[in-house]
Amino acid sequence: MADALLRVAELTKRFGGVIASEGVALDVADGELHAIIGPNGAGKTTLIGQLTGEIAPDSGRIYFAGQDITALPTHQRSAIGMARSFQITSLFLDMTVLDNVALAVQAHAGHSFRFWTPARSERALRAPAQAALARVGAADRGNVVVADLSHGEHRQIEIAMALATRPRLLLLDEPMAGMGPEESARLVNLLRELKKEYTILLIEHDMEAVFALADRISVLVYGRVIATGTPAAIRVNPEVIQAYLGEQQAVTGHG
């Protein structure tokens, strides 16, 4: 596909005898929301680790905006416009919410060999951070220390930090993990908004959310992509139904 923003070709990763990714091929078109679903142990986490550069694949290639990024370190992938949120909340717990998001802004505002001016008084860092917070509906939480926030709010800040890096592609790793139904519904609305502006690769367990949001869905089972297609096509795909036997109800029942 010519206008794929992210393209993954024949990605393979083994851990000893366990094959976590086996010839994974995937493309995320510019502007689409592409979801990856799969049962536990399907290799979703390993896949996102390879996309972000934390795990080196054994073979295969990853292209971002036409550039081969397979060997690019994590921080440089962020620099060229890939942002991720973490499945297990990964924030700077001892800092305030605004400090957290401002750090994400700072990472993309030139080098940080600036030793003298107080960073907390730099409008160039604080204003975009505040805007990102407003975007996820947490504008009034800026001065709270992150450790004091609820789980649902942590998930919001995760996304705000990703947005603050002004990405072209958002990699969202189970953003709804551990959320109650109300919080999930709010997040679905937020993602629906974000989808208008960003290309999103969404890894998610919540089938209802996935089928409501995704333009296309890829199904990962035992490290392989067994199907890619529109939600309607995936819902009736016999291989997918079989792979999800136990969760069949979840796949077919909602949306």
Binding site: E54, H75, A83, F92, M95, L103, H108
Partner: peptide, 15 residues
């Protein structure tokens, strides 16, 4: 930030 969460620092673009 690197003391608090180095992994996150890399993810948001800090070497």
């Amino acid at each position: 930030g690197a003391r608090s969460n180095d992994r996150r620092m890399h993810a948001i673009g800090f070497p």
